[in-house]
């Protein structure tokens, strides 16, 4: 039995226009981990997530979810994964409860099972009062929470969060992190991409930094933080330690 929630070997993606989004990416995320995948805009994070979740076709390499090859047994692999995408991909004319229950249906979960489960998740995420309104009536933060509810309805063992707190206020972010940390305590593995590096520093056990489609470093949070060269930060605002390591590795300092 696999000890990894996700195993990527030599993953490649070149888009039709010739853009090489991923170049020989290998990565392993242990079961139960809270893993941060960090990188600048356009580094390849969303492409990587798209390949794992089945919305992007890879051009090389392999990907296994809990030991299941996404090519040879895609249905089994996808059953384990829940995804909260970076961009809102909801039909805004659907009711909140229907969005969540229908998602369960695509996983083969009957409405009689999905409905009470959806009610509980919406309560947990503070959306229960909005269950009967169309998604277009929700605020940006509520839409983010709705996407988390939708991703959790089939009780995945592996949750992928692609910038889930973008545009979300501080209070809401904290409550979301509390909720998601609670999930990891229940054994759910989480892969997180975010530009809020102080959050990743505090929440995640392992981290990988990707730039121009290449993993430039990976390891435990302590190992990656230790890469800080101690150089004097540039003038002006200075971020946390992870932010300094991130800038050190992704910027050409020559």
């Amino acid at each position: 039995m696999s000890t990894s929630a996700l195993t990527l070997r030599n993953l490649e993606k070149t888009y039709a226009d010739g853009t090489r989004a991923l170049n020989d990416v290998s990565l392993e995320i242990p079961i139960g981990d809270f893993f941060a995948l960090l990188g600048p805009n356009g580094a390849g994070k969303t492409t990587l997530i798209g390949i794992v979740t089945g919305v992007v076709n890879k051009t090389g390499g392999s990907a296994h979810v809990f030991g299941t090859d996404i090519d040879t047994a895609p249905s089994t692999a996808r059953r384990h994964v829940g995804v909260v995408p970076q961009n809102v991909n909801i039909n805004i004319f659907e009711k909140v409860i229907d969005i969540v229950v229908n998602q369960a249906g695509y996983y083969g979960i009957a409405r009689s099972v999905a409905l009470p489960r959806a009610v509980q998740i919406l309560k947990d995420l503070g959306l229960y009062e909005k269950r009967s309104v169309e998604a277009r009536a929700l605020s940006g933060g509520m839409l983010r929470r709705l996407m988390i509810a939708r991703a959790l309805i089939h009780e995945p063992k592996f949750l992928i969060l692609d910038e889930p707190t973008a545009g979300v206020d501080v209070d809401l972010r904290r409550s979301m992190w509390d909720y998601l940390t609670g999930l990891t305590k229940q054994g759910v593995t989480i892969l997180l991409t975010t530009h809020y590096l102080e959050e990743a520093e505090q929440l995640c056990k392992h981290v990988a930094i990707i730039n121009d489609g290449v993993i430039i470093t990976k390891g435990t949070m302590a190992e990656v933080l230790a890469l800080h060269d101690g150089s004097t930060p540039r003038d002006g605002y200075t971020g946390g330690r992870l932010e300094e390591v991130f800038l050190q590795l992704t910027h050409d300092k020559s």
Binding site: T53, G54, V55, P74, S75, T76, R78, R79, V81, V83, P85, N87, N89, I90, N91, I92, N102, Q103, Y106, Y107, G108, R150, H154
Partner: peptide, 13 residues
């Protein structure tokens, strides 16, 4: 809406 992804990410054959 890109809501087709709801089905594409699922095990639906």
């Amino acid at each position: 809406s890109r809501s087709i992804d709801e089905i594409l990410v699922s095990p639906t054959p």
